[in-house]
Amino acid sequence: MENFEPVVVAFACHYCAYTAADMAGTKRLSYPPNVKIIRVPCTGKVDMLHIMKAFEKGADGVCVAACLDGDCHFRTGNVRAASHVDAVRKLLDEIGVGGERLEMVALSAGMGERFAQIATEITEKIRKLGPSPVRKVSVAAGAA
C-alpha cells in the first residue's frame, strides 16, 4: 500500500476546468501526475456509463470538473452532471466500490491554482482510501 499510486480520471469541461488545468501548466504549477484529464465539451456530456467504465477499467477515483453554478455554456449541463454524479455514487455504494471515490467540483477557466489544489487534494484522498477493490482483483487476476 505504501507505494500505491492512485489513478484518478478527471472529466474536465473544456470551458473551465480544462482551461484551468492548462493555466496551471502555463503558470508552472505542479500537480500530481496521477490525475488523467479527459476533455469534454461540457460536463453535461459525461454519461453515467463513462464514469462507470473508468472505474471498471481500473480508475481508483474519478472527478467531474464543471463550470461554476450558472456559468455552464450550455446553461444546465453542470446541473445535470451533478445529478448523474449523485446517481453513480449511489450505484458505486451498491456495488461496494464506494461512492466517495467519485467527486464533482466546480471552477472557472481562470482558476489555475485552484485546479492544481483540487488535483492534489483528490489524489491524496484517494491515496488514503487505497486502491479500488475492482482494480486490485483485475490486476491480481491478470498476474495469475
Partner: peptide, 21 residues
Amino acid sequence: RKEVGLLASSLKMAFSKDGKN
C-alpha cells in the same frame, strides 16, 4: 440499452471485486 450498459458494468465490478470474472 443504457440501463443494460450500467447494469453490466455494475455486475462486472461487483464480481471482479470478489475475484470473479
